[in-house]
């Protein structure tokens, strides 16, 4: 397996979790992502900043009433990166299954 198939940003399990969570939604509130992933606000902020810098996640800020809110959304670039990463993971699993099946003692 060529390591170049993997996305370095998504090799981090936390960042992979954030992107995986966002793939099925158009947007998600920062608070919901934080609760679901089980992180502190500052830790999540740091990871989201990294993903935002790479153009994987879009961050929108606004107010609902007087309360500030932050929403996260996966960008098409982020989605494509996750697709490539998942395809690379699938290849590893399939190659391993094929190797196991071809082994004479299997």
């Amino acid at each position: 397996m060529d390591p170049a198939d993997f996305d370095t940003a998504l090799l981090d399990p936390t960042r992979l979790s954030i992107v995986s969570l966002l793939v099925s939604v158009e947007w998600a509130e920062f608070g919901w992502v934080r609760e679901t992933v089980g992180m502190s606000p500052s830790a999540l902020s740091k990871q989201v900043s990294t993903l935002e810098t790479r153009g994987y996640v879009e961050v929108k800020k606004g107010y609902v009433g007087k309360r500030p809110r932050t929403w996260l959304a996966l960008t098409p670039t982020g989605r494509a990166a996750l697709e490539r990463h998942v395809a690379a993971l699938h290849r590893i699993v399939e190659e391993s299954q094929r190797a196991a099946a071809e082994r004479p003692d299997a």
Binding site: P13, S20, L21, V23, S24, T36, V86, L89
Partner: peptide
């Protein structure tokens, strides 16, 4: 990792 991705995707849905 694939199982985790699918689980989180389902949570999002």
């Amino acid at each position: 990792a694939l199982r985790d991705i699918e689980r989180l995707r389902a949570q999002g849905r």
